[in-house]
Design a protein around this nucleic acid. Structure first.
Lengths: 136, 136
DNA sequence: CGTCCAGCTTACGTTAACGTCAAGATGCTG
DNA sequence: CAGCATCTTGACGTTAACGTAAGCTGGACG
């Protein structure tokens, strides 16, 4: 047994836990989204890294870029400092929300449009099939 | 007057008509999405190119990749041939529609989630601001 | 005739978020 | 000790859909 669970995870455990690749975790570290400790040269991911990663993945679902996520994460961290920065975060999030709403609305339009097209297409195919049958 | 409108458009007219850049049109030609004629070395875009471009742009709104769009366009063109191919097109479009619906639903979830977070954030900011005031 | 404008081709640049080697360190195990 | 797995750091590759710049051409205008 890898002894494990002294509250820190190896990179592999981390990957398995969150369904990402090692490359991704190193990448996130390089981008200063995660700050794993070290044992020698090996990374040790703490609970805090886990929490951050969870937020990162959620952020991605929201459609934030990693850079935006980094900023948001940084602002989580300050806690006591600059209110201005925090409300800036807030703005970013609001913007993103608006983007998402817009995007959704566009999607809804597109969906309807495409559904119409498909009805059309159904008819065409149907008629072509009867043509085919008629031709036999 | 550039005489124009002998049913063909120059690249610029085309761009103005559809709100794209020349680069884009050349790119689409390179990708075999459009087939403008030539007058010497200058491109002449026909009505057919216009129709195709309209479909291309719509396809993009739907979230199709240019490659997918090319395939769909090719299948429009056959007209008389293979029904199988046509229904294949149909399937692709259906798949895309399902993708879009899924995507929209995810977006809706994300939007709600983010809205919740924002309520949270509002409170935090409000309380911090009163802290700030209290500190002065 | 000069010059200006629109268009052409070729080709390298861009961005995001990793993937994919390569080469070396470390550690366990039989 | 050999071997193997797992980790590390670098560094270059990938994809999509164009952007951008350089250098050439051909016609129109004054």
């Amino acid at each position: 047994m890898t002894d494990m669970s002294e509250d820190t995870k190896s990179i592999r455990e981390m990957c398995d836990a969150f369904g990402v690749t090692p490359r991704t975790l190193r990448f996130y570290e390089a981008k200063e989204l995660l700050f794993p400790h070290r044992d020698g040269q090996k990374r040790l991911f703490t609970k805090r890294d886990g929490a951050r990663l969870k937020l990162i993945l959620r952020g991605k679902r929201f459609g934030f870029s990693l850079e935006e996520i980094r900023q948001l994460l940084d602002l989580y961290h300050i806690g006591d400092q600059q209110i201005t920065q925090l409300s800036r975060t807030f703005e970013i999030a609001c913007d993103r929300l608006n983007d998402m709403v817009r995007q959704r609305d566009e999607l809804n339009e597109a969906i309807e449009e495409l559904q119409d097209q498909l009805k059309w297409g159904e008819k065409v195919i149907a008629s072509m099939q009867s043509d085919q049958e008629a031709a036999e």
